[in-house]
């Protein structure tokens, strides 16, 4: 099973990387861009795991390891079930 986890800063946390990209885009004339938030993508290959099990396992991994809950939030999705 292929799973994608997206980790990004909570809305309340300043994201200087995202802000820098926003500014760069404005300098280049992309005025339609109002705001950019930068995050991280993790693609996991899981084996021997049912969908149900994944629904418990993936958030656990994201919460415990991949994201720091003090500053980050995460979303996840299943990309491919075998």
């Amino acid at each position: 099973m292929k799973v994608r986890i997206l980790v990004s800063f909570k809305d309340s946390v300043l994201d200087p990387q995202g802000q820098t990209v926003t500014n760069a885009l404005h300098t280049m004339g992309y005025d339609a861009v109002m705001n950019v938030r930068q995050g991280k993508v993790f693609d996991l290959d899981l084996e021997g795991v049912t969908r149900k099990e994944a629904e418990a396992l993936v958030p656990e991994i994201a919460h415990r390891v991949l994201a720091n809950p003090i500053i980050e939030k995460f979303d996840w999705e299943i990309l491919k079930v075998r």
Binding site: V13, P16, Q17, I70, I71
Partner: peptide
């Protein structure tokens, strides 16, 4: 901080 022995977290320096 990650271990939870102290409160809070670290972000990148403000000027990156």
């Amino acid at each position: 901080l990650e271990l939870g022995l102290l409160p809070g977290a670290m972000l990148r320096n403000k000027d990156l």
